[in-house]
Simulated scan of single mutants.
Amino acid sequence: MEAVMRITDTIKAFRETRLSAIRPPQEFFDYNRISRPADLNTAVTRISYNTRYFSGNYSLIFAALGVYALITKPYLLIALVFLIGGFAAINKWAPEPMQVGQHVVTQKSLYTGLFVIGIPLLWYADPLGFAFWLVGASAIVILGHACMIEPGIESEYASVQEAV
């Protein structure tokens, strides 16, 4: 029960911090503010401001790319479901050793079997490729958007608000 409470608290905290910062689509996709930065300093300034300003939107983009990558990598999804589901099933239904025929099956032997099957399955599913693709794709999309969108007029007053 405590685990469920922790999960709901984490979701509430995420919603309050990141999802409350989501900007409307009209502002996020404002094609009137798209322009090529004049130089590297302008690009860095835009990226610095826009990553803070659109942080909620960028979190959604990262999550959407993660879901897309999991859907397109069914082996990784199967491996994760197998390992997480097996771990949960062993904890729930086999906390004590049990007699099966002439053998005593312990929780340790079940975990050993789970990992002997699950780790090669996970290795074959290429989780590092998934992680690198996710980081690379999100970096290209997020940094590209942050670099190309001109900050609004409110960006001029951001340093004034911080000083007050």
Rank of each mutant, 00 (worst) to 15 (best):
L70H: 03
A64G: 12
W123H: 10
F115R: 09
I22G: 00
V164G: 00
V67Y: 11
A38N: 14
F54I: 02
F115K: 07
P95G: 05
N57R: 03
V81M: 12
K73D: 01
I142K: 01
F132C: 03
F28H: 00
F14D: 08
P120F: 09
A131C: 07
K73S: 08
I61W: 00
I84N: 05
G101Y: 06
M148N: 03
L121Q: 12
G136V: 06
E156I: 05
M98Q: 14
C147D: 00
L60Q: 04
G144V: 02
I119H: 03
R15I: 10
S48M: 07
F87N: 15
V67S: 06
L40D: 03
G101K: 12
I71N: 03
Y124L: 10
D30L: 04
E156Q: 10
V160F: 14
E154K: 08
T51R: 01
A94D: 08
E16I: 02
N50W: 03
S159T: 11
Y124V: 06
M98W: 15
R33C: 04
S138K: 00
R23S: 04
S35C: 09
K73Q: 09
N41Q: 09
L40A: 14
L83R: 05
G86M: 07
L143P: 00
Y58N: 01
G56T: 02
F14W: 08
S35L: 13
E162S: 08
P127Q: 10
I78D: 03
V116G: 01
V135Y: 01
V4E: 11
Y75N: 03
H145V: 02
R18T: 00
G66M: 05
N91C: 08
A163G: 11
L77W: 06
Y111C: 08
A79F: 15
A163E: 14
M5I: 10
Q107F: 02
E96P: 06
H103E: 15
T112Q: 15
A89E: 13
S155E: 08
Q161K: 08
T45Q: 11
Q161G: 02
N50G: 04
D126R: 09
M148S: 03
I84L: 14
V44E: 14
I34W: 04
M148E: 01
N32V: 12
F87I: 15
S138N: 06
Q26S: 04
T51A: 01
N32E: 13
G101E: 13
F132L: 14
I149D: 00
L134H: 00
P95T: 05
M5W: 13
W123G: 10
R52Y: 02
L65N: 00
L122D: 02
T72S: 11
A137F: 02
F87R: 15
V44F: 13
G152R: 08
E150F: 05
Y75M: 06
S159K: 10
A63Y: 01
A79M: 15
D30Y: 04
D9P: 11
M1V: 13
L83H: 03
P97T: 01
E156S: 07
T106Q: 10
R23G: 01
R23A: 05
A139L: 05
M98R: 15
Y58G: 00
N32A: 10
S55W: 00
V67T: 06
Q26T: 04
L121H: 10
P95S: 03
E2C: 06
K92H: 15
M5T: 09
I61C: 00
A139V: 01
P97V: 02
L134M: 05
F54V: 01
G56S: 03
V160W: 12
I119Y: 07
T51P: 02
F115T: 12
M5G: 09
E96L: 14
K73V: 02
